[in-house]
Design a protein around this nucleic acid. Structure first.
Lengths: 182, 182
DNA sequence: TGAAAGTCTAAACAAATGTTATCGTACAGT
DNA sequence: ACTGTACGATAACATTTGTTTAGACTTTCA
């Protein structure tokens, strides 16, 4: 937060006193679909994946979130609509839980609260924009080759079938791509 | 703006006095790649497409923007980086041009300027999030069938090959999909 | 108003990607 | 340490999607 906005120690303490720390076990579900998300998480340590389950029951990995990142179904958090996403810890993961009440308190009461909200939304917009640029102007192979730019060390932390899902291809096909580039 | 934030007539006038109206002809280029975008456009009338040209020279349509919408390479506008995108008017299009100076003036001087910035960023984030949800959990056919939810009447306003490009498929394949659903 | 350019469909073929099944290995939980 | 489960590679085959080309039709604009 100090990197984003000018904030006094008092403000920071008031804000953080409304949050709570929480630890999830490996493979534990953090947030369920069909429920209005009322929290934003900040990852202290660990790895979270965001996925969507389609009508046929297939899981699609939409995002990985690493240390020092905010994560939530931000879209439906803002819209106060039931989530489509599942958030799942891929490792033992420690987070700071920011409830909606704290966020809204921040917008109102922090000197630069609205600015922080704007910067966070802008940050995620840029991420999403890059995602779309990549998806539509590059091949799966090219996307695979640069995934560590966005998620360093992901190959050692997430199973390959989830990476394939993130890239929008099947695990079998990813295995082929890897082979052909050797 | 009045729909987003509380703003007085004086504030609104001060803000809008820093903008200018402009009209582009059909097929005219509005914004070039490799240039830092320093404007946000608000569409009064017309239709704009946003596209990216890849290394092989292929054009990929990433977005259509309709009346009453803001449009720009918002990502690179914020980052003050040279754009990857081309903005092109598909019809004779009238816009309000908001230069960077006006936007930044708004953040600083409008009572709820930062809030407006947050809401705009959030709005686009939600749009992008839906785009990603759609892309990764639905087939091209399913995406085609619902494109008018996002871009009403687009079939009468944009050529089919641009719609195909937006969907991430070739025009030939789109033609096939249409045939098979008859 | 006529030529040129753009647009959509269609067919045949090619390439990319998905599906299913099998196997060996690694790993997690008891 | 044992055992069931998850994981990744691979092969054979199926399906989807892309490529190229051609033709008919429409739109643009000089």
């Amino acid at each position: 937060m100090k990197q984003m906005i000018a904030i006094s120690e008092d403000e920071l303490n008031d804000f953080l006193s409304q949050s709570v720390s929480k630890t999830f076990k490996r493979n534990e579900t953090i947030s369920q679909p069909n429920v209005v998300p009322n929290e934003i998480f900040f990852i202290i340590k660990g790895l979270i994946r965001v996925m969507i389950t389609d009508n046929e029951g297939n899981e699609h990995t939409v995002h990985f979130a690493l240390e020092n990142q905010f994560i939530s179904d931000y879209s439906n958090f803002m819209q106060k609509q039931p989530s489509f996403y599942t958030l799942q810890a891929l490792e033992e993961t420690q987070v700071v839980v920011l409830p909606r009440s704290a966020i809204e308190w921040g917008y109102k009461n922090l000197q630069e609260g609205e600015k922080m909200g704007r910067l966070i939304a802008e940050y995620y917009f840029i991420y999403q924009d890059n995602r779309i640029k990549n998806t539509f102007s590059r091949t799966p192979k090219q996307r695979y080759d640069t995934i560590t730019d966005v998620f360093p060390n992901i190959h050692n932390r997430a199973p390959q079938h989830m990476i394939a899902s993130y890239l929008g291809i099947t695990p079998v096909h990813l295995s082929r791509l890897k082979k052909s580039s050797r």
